[in-house]
Nucleic acid binder design. Structure first.
Lengths: 221, 221
DNA sequence: ACCGAACCGTAACGTACGGTACGATTGGTG
DNA sequence: CACCAATCGTACCGTACGTTACGGTTCGGT
């Protein structure tokens, strides 16, 4: 059981340990919840004794894996300088693309399934870790963009948190819950780009300070 | 193992069987995934032999429970006659309220957790059953409302499915994933009403055929 | 009253899996 | 080479749980 259940923590690992955690991720993706300590050890070609020495117990393995994956997802920050409407739109849209790519990736789906199941079992840091590194992390990274847009007179809103939640909803819609429940919707790169573009247009239509001008009210299919 | 994994199927149960499934639901809510056949039998005050005779195996119990819960959630249909903008807004908003109430209920959260976990374990009808009775069922019930609104000249959109997905996203935002991952956000009746109202305003702002007139572009907090 | 079916409560079985122990192997260091 | 620490592979243990079996009980039909 790791003592850290917050962000970061994933840098004090040896290369070998990271390889093991990558093996855990592959096992999660391929075998779902048939994730036993024995299967992990076999997949990672290490002994169970090593797993227990490094991570304490099964929960420690899961926790370390979630944090390891989270540390890999840190996307680049978006500059909030010299914003014009095109740059703002670009920032929002690339944000939406990145998020859709994450939640539709096999790894994220497998990880979230484990975390959701774990959250149902009483004491569950896993769910909170996933939330902290997923939903809340992107919120904290996007809110400065929103506030910069407001300061530049491009966006109009009162509460950045609520406004981010709206953007979150417009981008994600039903994608994550459908994927978690096993719907095999195909989120191709083209689909993701298309939906991110729509979501951004809709968001700007709702919160753009100026009338959206050329934004179509009826989405073109 | 039940042979029906579609909608309906929950009417051919005896009262005693429904009581047993209600006990399973309570067990799910209170004990999470600590749902063993023994605990179910004890809670339902029936024998395990009866559970196996009625439902086949553990999966059969879970499947029957999901279908039983689904059969209880059938909400009233919304009339699509004589729509004016107030009636349309009322329909959308009550839809949003009903959906937020469902996804924030303890029962739904527990059920969705089980279904998500199950979807990770290869063969999983559970996830599809939950999707069919949740996300897709409300989609099929709301789309006629949307199309009636368009026919009445109150809404403008091209694809009812995509438009429903937008409404779905505006209503649900980050609520379901946060609750599934164990975030104890408090969705009070007042909060639900407030968020449903916002979502409806935003949706009408995006897809209302006439300019939204009195709808505020900046959401009032 | 009698019978059989359904059901209850509980014991028992087999297996899967988390966790531990231990000998064998590897690799680095003097 | 000798030595030591870390790790591997595997066998083992204890337990939890799905599933089955069975004796006792309830209850509707005749």
């Amino acid at each position: 059981m790791q003592e850290v259940n917050d962000i970061d923590a994933g840098e004090t690992l040896t290369q070998r340990q990271r390889d093991v955690l990558d093996a855990v991720l592959r096992q999660m993706v391929e075998e779902g919840d048939r994730l036993t300590m024995t299967s992990v050890a076999r997949r990672a070609r290490c002994s169970k004794e090593t797993l227990y020495r490094w991570f304490g117990d099964r929960d420690g393995v899961l926790t370390a894996t979630v944090q390891w994956q989270a540390s890999k997802v840190r996307a680049g920050t978006y500059d909030s300088q010299h914003l014009d409407v095109a740059a703002l739109r670009e920032s929002l849209e690339s944000f939406a693309i990145a998020w859709l790519e994450v939640i539709s990736s096999e790894t994220s789906i497998a990880l979230n399934r484990v975390a959701v199941a774990h959250a149902g079992s009483g004491k569950s840091n896993l769910g909170r870790i996933v939330l902290a590194n997923g939903r809340f992390a992107i919120g904290e990274r996007l809110k400065p963009v929103l506030e910069a847009g407001r300061k530049a007179g491009l966006l109009a809103f009162e509460d950045a948190e609520e406004t981010f939640r709206t953007f979150f909803g417009l981008v994600g819609r039903d994608v994550q819950i459908r994927l978690l429940l096993g719907d095999d919707m195909k989120m191709t790169a083209a689909t993701i780009r298309q939906e991110a573009s729509w979501a951004t247009s809709q968001f700007l239509s709702l919160h753009g300070a100026k009338p959206p001008a050329t934004e179509p009210r009826i989405r073109a299919l």
